[in-house]
Simulated scan of single mutants.
Amino acid sequence: MLRRAAARTRLVVAVAFLLLAVVPSVGAGQAVAAGQAVAEPPAPSASPAPNVGAQAGRLAWPLTPRPNVARFFEPPATVYGPGHRGVDLEAAAGQDVFAADMGVVIFAGQVGGRGVVAVDHDGGLRTTYLPIAPTVATGDQVYRGQKLGTVVAGHPGCPTAACLHWGARKGEEYIDPLALVGVPGRVRLKPWADSR
C-alpha cells in the first residue's frame, strides 16, 4: 500500500511539473498606478490569498550565501492560469542546495529531463527545488540545512548561467517561498491626499 501511495505521489508531482512547464508565464513587470512609487529594490508581490497560513521565518534559504532573486513569485489568477509558482534564485552550477526545513523527500528524480526534489514538511507544506542533481532519494528524512543536491545550469528564463527554481505549496495553494523566510512584500508609496 505504501508503494502504491509513493508511486501516486511521484505521478502527481510529475504531472504538476509538466503542467507548469507548458503553462505560459505572465510578464515579470507589474503596472503601478499613476502617482505611486515602488520602493527599490523590488521585493516579491504581496498576494494575500495564496499566502494564507504562511509563517514568516519558517523556512531557511536553500542556498548560501543568501542569493539574489532573479524572478519573483507571480500567483496565477486561476488554478491552471499563467504565473510563476515559485522564485528563481541566482546560483552557480554545482552549488549545494539545502533543505529549507525538516521533512521527508517525496520525489527525487527526473521530470522532463530536469532533476527535481520535492520535500513534504509538517503542516501540509511542500517545497520543490529544480533543476538539481539530487543527492537524496524518495523516502529520505531530511533536516533543515541538509544537502539535497547541487544546482544544474540551464534553467529557462534565468538571466545568469544557473538559477534554482524554489517553490512552495500549502495544501493545494501555491505560496511565495520568500514570505516563509521573512522577506517583506512589495512596498508601495502613495501620495498624500490634498486636504484643501
Rank of each mutant, 00 (worst) to 15 (best):
M1Y: 10
M1N: 09
A5M: 12
R8H: 08
V12M: 04
A16Q: 08
L18W: 07
L20P: 00
V22T: 15
V22L: 15
V23C: 06
P24H: 07
P24A: 12
P24G: 08
V26N: 08
G27T: 13
G27D: 11
A31T: 14
A34K: 10
V38K: 08
A43H: 10
P48H: 12
A49C: 05
A49K: 03
A49M: 06
P50G: 00
V52W: 00
A54G: 02
R58T: 06
R58W: 14
L59A: 00
W61S: 00
W61N: 04
W61Q: 05
P62E: 10
R66N: 07
R71G: 11
Y80F: 15
G83T: 02
H84I: 02
R85S: 00
D88V: 09
A92N: 02
V97T: 01
F98I: 01
D101T: 09
G109C: 09
V111Q: 08
G115I: 12
V116N: 01
A118Q: 07
A118F: 03
D120K: 06
D122L: 03
T128A: 13
L130G: 04
L130M: 14
P131R: 04
P131N: 05
I132Y: 00
A133M: 06
P134Y: 03
A137M: 11
T138W: 00
D140F: 09
Q146S: 07
L148I: 05
G149L: 05
V151P: 05
P156M: 08
G157T: 06
C158V: 11
A168S: 12
K170F: 05
K170Q: 08
I175P: 01
I175K: 03
D176W: 07
P177V: 08
L178A: 03
A179H: 05
P184S: 13
V187D: 11
V187G: 04
W192H: 15
A193Y: 03
D194C: 07
R196E: 06
